[in-house]
Every structure is written in structure tokens, then in C-alpha cells.
Nucleic acid binder design. Structure first.
Lengths: 123, 123
DNA sequence: TGGTCATATGAGTAATTGTTCATATGTTTA
DNA sequence: TAAACATATGAACAATTACTCATATGACCA
């Protein structure tokens, strides 16, 4: 019973299609799942991070390599790599002073490709 | 010649792997393409918009339905629908006073599913 | 025509975020 | 140990953004 309550406080208009809404509500995934999904896409939602991921999909590279490739400061890249690591999208290994980063998820490219399909569908 | 220049102004460290960087550079897509891709994912990077898209994937709904379903104000939903429309992810049709929104891209669900695969890969 | 309702939109605001700058950490080598 | 170098990180700042509030627009109906 509890947990199935539907508050109408926020919606400042009359509901028109109760049946549709209720049907959709049943099919919606957990709130948390969709939140996590948004968090993941938020990580993809920055061109610096997209470029880093795309680059790492081609080859493992150290922080310095990436900074040079993208013409950005080491610090900026390092900050973004931290975000990508937290999202479990990249992993790293240390070799002396140098830290090498690589992709940690084989789905990244697939997600990118699907995104590109949408972009190229300019209607 | 021009356009192939590589500036080293920003990178404040020594490059270690010129060969790797150059090889990756050749394979990188257009700067603009990756920027557009990031813009698309930015749209996905908000749980309100994710929920709207997921809901619309289940059924066409009017603004009021969505506001009620997500327990948000009509205004907030309307603002987000505008963003989704600009990204060509939803379309709408008017029927009297009511405006119905629906998904305008069949890849959305595929992109979401790929994202979910990543999320569920908790290692 | 005036009133009501669904939706859209502009301004304002609090929160988030990407980068820079300075500096810390950790590793190698002299 | 000290110097040099690759990387990490905290604070600060500017830019962006999601929502609220007030109001505009557009459609229907009495």
C-alpha cells in the first residue's frame, strides 16, 4: 500500500489520461536506476571526457600523452580522468613515474556509435 | 600544412610517446563530431529528462500527464520538453488545447540499454 | 467577447561544473 | 638526501543549468 501512493501536490494542472499514466508508471524502472543512468550520461556529456574516452579506445596512454593530444593542461586532464575512473570507465596502471590509462568498458564505443547514429540522422 | 599544426603551449609536461599520440590523433573523429556527441549525452545527463524519455518510450503523453507522472510542475516539464525537442529526441502534436509528446528516435532505448549494461556491471 | 484551461517562456536564483593555479604526492636518479 | 619529473588534488572562479514564479500564448466554450 505505502509506496504506491501518488502525490498530486506538484502537478498544477488536471490529469487527462489516468489510464495511460498508470500504465506507464507500472513500466517505469526504479527511480534509482534512472538516476544512475543519468549520472553515467552526465559523464559522457562533456567533450573533453568524450575525447579522452575516444582516444583511450584507440590506445592506452599516459596523462601527459592525453594532455598533449588534446592540447590541454595536465591538471585539467587529470581531473577528468578522476571523473572517468569514478564512473568505472577507465582504469590505470603505474609504471614508475608514469601512469597509463585505458578503457575499462567495452560498451563505451557502442554507446558512442549509437549516439552518432542519432546525430547523423539530421532530418 | 596549416591545420596539421600541433601546438604544445598548453601541455605542461614532456611528451613520452609521440608515436602513440600521432597514431591516435589520426584516428580521432572531427572535433565537431565529438562536440555534438557530448551535447547529445548532455541531454541524457539529467534524470528528469531520462525519466521523460523513458516514459515517452512507453506511451505518447501530454505535458500534464508527464508532470503528474513525475510529480513535477508543468513548467519544469515544459522547459525540459523544449530541450528534448531541440535535440530532436521528441516530437509533439497539438490536439486542441492539449499537446502530445512522443519519442522521435528509436535509438534512444538502445542507448539507454547499453548504459544500463554498464551500470549493472558493478565490479 | 470574456473566461478557463493547457502549454510555453522569460527572468531570477541556487546549485553544479570545468578549468586554472598553486601545491602536494610519489617515483626515479644523481 | 636532494633534485627532477609525472601525476594528483584542493581552492577559487566563471559559466552553465534546472527549477520556480509570474506571465504570455493559444485554443475552446459559454
Amino acid at each position: 500500500m505505502a509506496g504506491k501512493n501518488v502525490s498530486t501536490d506538484r502537478c498544477d494542472c488536471e490529469v487527462i489520461h489516468d489510464d495511460v499514466v498508470n500504465s506507464v508508471r507500472k513500466k517505469m524502472p526504479e527511480e534509482e536506476t534512472l538516476y544512475d543512468l543519468a549520472e553515467l550520461f552526465k559523464v559522457f556529456g562533456d567533450s573533453t571526457r568524450i575525447r579522452i574516452l575516444w582516444a583511450l579506445d584507440e590506445a592506452e596512454m599516459c596523462v601527459c600523452d592525453i594532455a598533449y593530444l588534446l592540447n590541454m593542461t595536465q591538471s585539467a586532464i587529470s581531473h577528468q580522468l578522476r571523473v572517468l575512473k569514478q564512473a568505472k570507465l577507465v582504469r590505470n596502471r603505474r609504471e614508475g613515474k608514469v601512469v597509463y590509462y585505458s578503457l575499462d568498458d567495452e560498451h563505451v564505443k557502442m554507446i558512442f556509435d549509437q549516439g552518432l547514429v542519432h546525430i547523423n540522422e539530421e532530418r
